[in-house]
Amino acid sequence: HMTFVALYDYVASGETDLSFKKGERLQIVNNTEGDWWLAHSLTTGRTGYISSNYVAPSD
């Protein structure tokens, strides 16, 4: 899985979204569905959809 880092804080707007904080590391589970990616937070252990605009590759 690809690992990304959050560029900004994000508060989930629905049950399927994932809230995260700036600097949080996220593993991308599925990024084939446009701008919203299914991600797993390595910080909180939660999984949900994130906006690809809010993250950048961590490598």
Rank of each mutant, 00 (worst) to 15 (best):
V55F: 10
F4C: 07
W36C: 14
L7E: 03
A12C: 05
T47S: 09
K22W: 03
G45H: 08
T3Y: 14
D59T: 12
V11R: 07
N31V: 11
K22T: 06
A6E: 00
R25K: 13
A39Y: 04
D17A: 10
T3W: 14
K21E: 08
S52T: 07
L42N: 04
R46D: 06
L38P: 01
Y8F: 12
L7K: 05
D17I: 09
D35Y: 09
T16M: 13
T47F: 11
S51F: 14
V29S: 06
T16Q: 13
D17S: 08
W36P: 13
D35E: 13
H40P: 00
I28Y: 02
Q27R: 14
N31F: 15
G23P: 01
Y49L: 08
S13N: 11
A56G: 10
E24G: 00
N31W: 14
L18T: 02
T3N: 07
D59Y: 12
L26M: 08
S41F: 02
T47G: 03
Y54D: 07
Y10C: 10
E15L: 12
L7A: 03
S51M: 15
T43N: 08
N31K: 14
W36K: 14
V5A: 02
G14S: 14
L42M: 08
R25Y: 14
T44M: 02
S58H: 12
G34C: 08
T43E: 13
T32R: 10
Y8W: 10
S58E: 15
S41Q: 04
L26K: 00
D17N: 11
M2Y: 10
Y10A: 04
V29N: 04
R25C: 14
M2E: 09
E24Q: 02
V29D: 05
Y49R: 07
Y54G: 05
D59Q: 12
L26F: 15
E33L: 13
E24F: 09
P57W: 11
Y8H: 08
T16L: 13
G14W: 11
K22S: 06
D59C: 14
A12Q: 05
E15I: 10
L18G: 01
G48M: 04
Y49V: 04
V29C: 14
V5P: 00
Q27T: 11
S13L: 12
S58V: 15
N53W: 15
V11T: 11
R25N: 07
A6W: 02
Y10I: 06
L18I: 07
I50G: 00
Q27S: 08
I28N: 05
D35K: 10
P57I: 11
H1Q: 12
G48A: 03
V29I: 15
N31Q: 13
W36F: 10
A39K: 00
F4E: 00
Y54P: 03
S19A: 06
R46W: 08
Y8A: 09
K21I: 08
T16R: 14
N53V: 13
H1D: 11
K22E: 05
L26Q: 00
E33T: 12
G14L: 11
N53I: 13
D35G: 11
V55P: 02
L42S: 05
E33N: 14
G34P: 12
H1P: 13
T32I: 10
D9Q: 02
G23M: 02
R46Y: 06
G34S: 09
Q27L: 15
T16K: 14
E15F: 08
N53C: 15
M2F: 10
D17Y: 15
T44Y: 02
I50V: 13
A6N: 00
H1Y: 14
R25L: 15
T3D: 06
A39I: 05
T16N: 14
T43F: 06
D35F: 10
Y49D: 01
E33G: 12
G45Y: 04
L38C: 11
T43L: 10
E24D: 12
T3V: 15
G48N: 00
V55R: 02
L38R: 03
E24L: 02
T32Q: 12
Y8I: 13
Q27M: 14
T3M: 13
T16I: 08
A6I: 02
D35A: 10
L7D: 02
W36G: 05
W37G: 00
Y54F: 12
G45D: 05
V11S: 08
N30E: 11
G48R: 01
E15M: 09
S52R: 14
S41W: 01
D9E: 06
N31M: 15
L26V: 05
N53Y: 14
L26G: 04
S19G: 06
A56W: 09
A39V: 14
E24C: 03
E15S: 11
Y10F: 09
R46T: 05
F4S: 01
W36Q: 10
M2S: 09
V5K: 03
E24K: 01
A6C: 08
R25I: 15
T44F: 04
T44W: 03
L26W: 01
E15P: 14
A56H: 07
S13I: 14
M2R: 12
D59P: 13
K22G: 02
V29K: 07
S58G: 10
H1L: 13
I50C: 02
S58N: 09
K21C: 14
F20C: 03
V5C: 06
M2K: 12
W36R: 15
G14F: 12
E33R: 12
R25H: 12
S52W: 07
G45M: 05
F4Y: 14
S19N: 05
D35V: 10
H40D: 01
A56E: 10
S19W: 03
F4Q: 01
A6T: 12
Y49A: 02
P57K: 09
N30Q: 10
I28Q: 14
V29F: 10
F20G: 00
G45S: 04
K22L: 05
T32Y: 08
A12F: 03
K21N: 08
E33S: 12
T44D: 03
V11Y: 09
L38G: 00
T47P: 01
R46S: 06
Y49Q: 03
R46N: 07
S13D: 09
N31D: 11
T3P: 04
V29Y: 10
I28G: 03
T32C: 11
E24W: 13
N53L: 14
A12R: 04
W37H: 02
G34I: 07
G34M: 07
T16D: 12
D9C: 06
H1S: 13
Y10L: 04
S52C: 12
R25F: 14
D9G: 06
T47Q: 08
